[in-house]
């Protein structure tokens, strides 16, 4: 019956991590954007960009990885735009989720699904 949920194996872990970050506060959508390829041939190095105007901090999660946390960006006073790009590992097809803590203390979310041809967690 577990298959009825249809969630990736580690999705609950991600939800818990996000709840711990936000303290259960409501999360808005539409302010920040995440840029990821629709299909990644190699899960070892997937380019991800996040653009979060007005954010003080952005945390990235990958809900199908054994450990969902990916990275946290904290923007300092000389940060020009609240945006950053990096390259990440994805174990398989899954969602990459960005949670931004805005300067006013509220939270915003953006999500992108990435189809991975070859997983990137070794094994």
């Amino acid at each position: 019956l577990a298959s009825l949920t249809g969630l990736p194996a580690f999705a609950n872990q991600t939800e818990e991590a996000i709840a711990a970050l936000t303290g259960g506060a409501e999360i808005g959508e539409g302010v920040i954007t995440i840029d990821a390829p629709e299909i990644a041939e190699n899960g070892n190095t997937v380019p991800i960009s996040v653009d979060a105007p007005g954010a003080a901090q952005v945390t990235l999660y990958a809900d199908g990885n054994p450990l969902p946390a990916v990275a946290t960006f904290t923007f300092g006073p000389l940060s020009a735009s609240r945006s950053a790009s990096t390259r990440i590992r994805l174990a398989g097809t899954q969602n990459v989720i960005a949670i931004a803590k805005m300067e006013d203390g509220t939270f915003q979310k953006a999500q992108a699904n990435v189809k991975v041809t070859i997983g990137g967690c070794g094994g």
Binding site: A69, A71, F75, G76, P77
Partner: peptide, 13 residues
């Protein structure tokens, strides 16, 4: 003065 401060997890390539 700080520009950016990043925490990296093992999921970074």
């Amino acid at each position: 003065q700080n520009v950016i401060d990043v925490t990296l997890e093992p999921a970074i390539s």
